[in-house]
Nucleic acid binder design. Sequence first.
DNA 1: ATCAGTTAGTTTCAGATGGAAACCAGATGC
DNA 2: GCATCTGGTTTCCATCTGAAACTAACTGAT
Lengths: 123, 123
Amino acid sequence: MDQPDAFSARCPTRQILDRIADKWTVLLLGLLASRTMRFNELRRGVDGLSQKVLSQTLKSLERDGLVTRAAYPTVPVTVEYAITDLGRTLAATLEPLRLWAEGHMEAVEKARIDFDQRQQAAA
Amino acid sequence: MDQPDAFSARCPTRQILDRIADKWTVLLLGLLASRTMRFNELRRGVDGLSQKVLSQTLKSLERDGLVTRAAYPTVPVTVEYAITDLGRTLAATLEPLRLWAEGHMEAVEKARIDFDQRQQAAA
DNA sequence: ATCAGTTAGTTTCAGATGGAAACCAGATGC
DNA sequence: GCATCTGGTTTCCATCTGAAACTAACTGAT
C-alpha cells in the first residue's frame, strides 16, 4: 500500500480533502461540535446555506462517518444530526481555520485594497 | 465594528473562509511553505490542477496577500511565487487539514463502504 | 528561414455545481 | 377548508470547472 499523498490526483486522500476543505463543512461541523442539532436548526445557524446544499452536505458527512442522522416519527418529523468521534477529530482540525478567517479578516481586506489600487495604477 | 462571525452571511469572514477552505489552496500553500516555486513547478507539484485554475488561484492568493508574484525578463520568462508572512500563518493552519485527510483516509473509506452497504440493504 | 520547444499564461466549450424559489408529504390547529 | 410545522426534493438559471487548444516571445536545431 502506497503512502497516502494528497498531492497525487490518484490518491483517495484527494477526494477526502475536497470534501472537508469546504466552507459549509467547516461551519456545520463547528456547530455540531457543541451539540446535536435538527435540520432547520442547522439551517438557521448557518446563514446563507440553502436547504438543497444543507441536505447534500449532511448526506455526504453522514456517508463519510462524520455525523449520524436519527429520524423520530413525531409530528412533525424530528431529525437529529450528531457529530461522531471521527467527526470530532476533524472539527478540532477545522476550528483553527474558522478562527484564522475571523482573526485575519482585516489583514486580508487591507491586502485586497492595496492590490486593487496597484492594479488600478498599472492600468 | 461588529465581531467577526463566519456564521453570518454578511460578514467578510465568510468570503475569506470560502477562499481558504479550498482544496487547491491547501495544496499550493503546502508546497510554497517549503520554498519559492515557479508556475510550472507548482503545476507539476499538484497533480490534476489545470493551468487555468492554477492561474486563477494564484491571482486570488496574491490579491489576499498570501503569496507574492515576481516576474523576471529572462528567456523564457521566469515567474516566481513566494509565500508571505501572512500566508505562512495560514499554511500552518492548513497543514493539519491535509494531514487529517492523509491520516483518516482509511476510516473515511470504511465509513463509505458501510454506508453504501446499508443503503443497498435498505433498497 | 522554418519548425520544434521553452516559458506563463488566456480562451473556448461542454458538463458539473450553486443558490433561489417552488413544490411535496404528512399531520395538527383553527 | 386553509394555513403551518417539519424535512426534505425538484426546477431553473447562472456561475464554475476541467480538458484542450491557442497565444506570445524567444532559443536552438535543421
